[in-house]
Amino acid sequence: MDALREAVDEVAARTGFSGVVRVDVAGDTEICSAYGFADRALEIPNTVETQFGTASGTKGLTALVVMALVERGTLELSTTARSLLGRDLPLIAGDVTVEHLLAHRSGIGDYLDEDALDDITAYVMPVPVHRLATAEQYLAVLDGFPSVFPAGERFAYNNGGYVVLALLAERASGVGYHELVRTLVCEPAGMVDTAFLRSDELPGRAARGYLAVDGLRTNVLHLPVLGVGDGGIYTTASDLHAFWEALFAGRIVGADTVREMVRPRSDLPEESKRYGLGFHLHATGDEVWLEGYDAGVSFASSHTPSTATTVTVMSNWSDGAWPVVKLLGERVS
């Protein structure tokens, strides 16, 4: 792996990568390296124990919360959103189910339509970001978006759908979303350094998210102050390794549920992948991954059960991760 490590070092130096790279193969950690600064102003370096934002990587944990509630009988895949929303979000069609939302096949309008964004660092929140810290508070930004196609018709990646799932999980269980993630996912997985952190009071071990390859401007005004459902959790490379091991060992949800979640619901040949319930899937193989991209955050973590290979790249600037992700995609199977 010396040649691969040298290649990662070269790409990191050439592209201004800031973050952590970890590669594990068959139980051995082949690469675990940190680059750049967690705090540029104070020149505090990233370490392999730094906590990074994951943006949409959070969706996989939300999906696991929902599926854990399905296992407990609190929800069903066939549960309609309307049955729990009552009068809230009236533009969500009556036949939209939990399964539709998990699979990005709901057809509901999206409060954050990434296809309409020319610049990931654009200001997109219609309310002050400090007002977005709980699932119920997100009702203010989720409302008013008409359906774009009938439920189940096709795949369309949808951020708002995962915030709706967080809201449904809360209402069905009577427990707050952040607490559900902690108790149903993080604790059974042994993810001791994973948590939802407020962007305006990050602890010392958390990396600030920067908009560009250089400069001091962070993402604190661009993202909700506390993520719910579709993004916002912070974690470490070590915790992600623990996550994949726990997931495929059946310690978060049962083995049958895991198989259901990684069963393809949509084939996306234009992106050379498929999609299950909360997880991206390789077009033909058994690789499963989470990824996230937002102002100040770029992240990907994958696991291939057949080769026991886990690859994680976490960066604290908007486009930092992608050159390293591309390299490892070409070099690590």
Rank of each mutant, 00 (worst) to 15 (best):
Tyr177Ile: 01
Leu167Thr: 07
Val225Ser: 03
Val124Ala: 10
Gly86Gln: 07
Asp239Cys: 14
Val48Asp: 00
Ile31Asn: 00
Gly254Cys: 04
Asp193Trp: 09
Tyr157Met: 09
Phe145Gln: 05
Phe37Ser: 12
Glu49Trp: 00
Val185Tyr: 14
Pro45Asp: 12
Phe149Thr: 04
Gln51Tyr: 06
Leu64Val: 06
Ser199Arg: 15
His280Cys: 13
Val70Asn: 07
Ile252Arg: 14
Glu71Leu: 09
Arg72Gln: 15
Ser306Lys: 03
His280Glu: 13
Asp2Ile: 10
Asp113Trp: 10
Thr304Ala: 10
Ala300Arg: 12
Ala81Phe: 14
Leu139Phe: 12
Asn158Cys: 13
Asp239Phe: 12
Met314Phe: 03
Glu270Gln: 14
Gly36His: 03
Thr312Gln: 03
Thr218His: 11
Lys59Arg: 12
Leu211Ala: 03
Val148Ser: 07
Thr80Val: 02
Thr218Ile: 04
Leu132Thr: 11
Ala249Trp: 07
Leu77Tyr: 05
Ser315Asp: 00
Ser83Thr: 08
Val148Ala: 02
Gly73Trp: 11
Val262Met: 00
Lys326Ala: 15
Leu197Ser: 03
Glu30Pro: 05
Arg274Pro: 01
Asp294Ile: 06
Asp28Cys: 11
Arg40Gln: 00
Arg14Ala: 15
Ser298Met: 01
Pro45Thr: 15
Ala169Leu: 10
Phe279Cys: 10
Ala34Ile: 02
His241Met: 08
Glu30Gly: 01
Pro128Ser: 12
Val23Met: 06
Gly204Phe: 11
Leu180Cys: 11
Phe248Arg: 14
Leu268Asp: 03
Leu277Met: 05
Cys32Tyr: 13
Glu153Arg: 09
Gln51Pro: 09
Tyr111Phe: 11
Ser18Glu: 15
Arg263His: 09
Gly160Lys: 09
Phe196Cys: 04
Ser333Tyr: 11
Gly276Tyr: 06
Ile92Pro: 11
Gly109Cys: 04
Asn46His: 13
Asp239Ala: 13
Gly329Glu: 02
Leu42Ser: 15
Ser301His: 05
Glu291Pro: 09
Ala38Tyr: 09
Leu165His: 00
